[in-house]
């Protein structure tokens, strides 16, 4: 009998081959795909996120776990029914206009994707109107905004203002992150949340959707 806890542990250890092997074995033993996903894999990524937040797991380890996660999800995706789709919410994410930094934004995207979110990644140097358009096009529930420069922090405010002016501010929660920003700044510009790392971002996004 497949042991979902072993899958969780292998995922935390970032062992892609072991994870995919165990997931395939569980599938072969007719364990429901959504059970493997939720009780084996997503549970594992939750722990990874927590440990990252606590400073107990480091970025390369988180990347290994995420790589194992996406390989496992690739096995499960065709087996999941319509109503048990992986998607728990849609997130439009990008780095503020004028800012080329993508590493933090990519880490957050990866953690959210691992938690079952659909990610619409607009990349770097994203204009406020691009965020607005993407929210409308995809009917997203969350906007993730990143800035790594003190000079592009004001652009976060501009982006939130643009969401307001176009009438979509109420339908989304805006989460911000990046080295120079903090909770105080998030409150000041009227964002709904701030996350200091990708693990916290994932947790925050899930709280919003629950």
């Amino acid at each position: 009998m497949a042991d979902l806890n072993t899958i969780t542990q292998a995922l935390i250890a970032g062992d892609k081959d072991q994870v995919t092997g165990l997931v395939q074995k569980a599938v072969d033993e007719n364990v429901a795909a959504n059970k493997i996903l939720n009780e084996g894999l997503i549970k594992g990524m939750d722990i990874v996120g927590d440990r990252m937040q606590e400073g107990d797991m480091f970025i390369p380890e988180v990347l290994m776990s995420a790589r194992a996660m996406s390989a496992a999800v690739a096995i499960l995706k065709p087996l999941l029914g319509e109503d048990e789709s992986v998607v728990t919410g849609k997130v439009v994410i990008g780095t503020a206009k004028g800012d080329m930094h993508d590493i933090g934004k990519n880490l957050v995207s990866m953690m959210l994707e691992s938690a079952g979110f659909e990610i619409i990644d607009l990349g770097v140097d994203v204009a406020p109107e691009q965020f607005v358009q993407a929210v409308k096009d995809h009917q997203a529930q969350i906007v993730g905004l990143s800035a790594l420069l003190t000079t592009t922090m004001p652009m976060m405010q501009t982006t939130i203002d643009a969401l307001k002016q176009s009438g979509v501010r109420e339908q989304v929660k805006v989460l911000i992150g990046g080295a120079p920003v903090n909770q105080e700044f998030a409150d000041k510009i009227g964002a709904d949340g701030y996350a200091p790392d990708a693990g916290s971002a994932s947790k925050l996004a899930k709280q919003i959707m629950s």
């Binding site: 480091f58 970025i59 390369p60 990347l63 590493i103 880490l107």
Partner: peptide, 8 residues
């Protein structure tokens, strides 16, 4: 310099 943690 870019962080080693994301790409060795």
């Amino acid at each position: 310099v870019q962080p080693l943690s994301v790409n060795n």
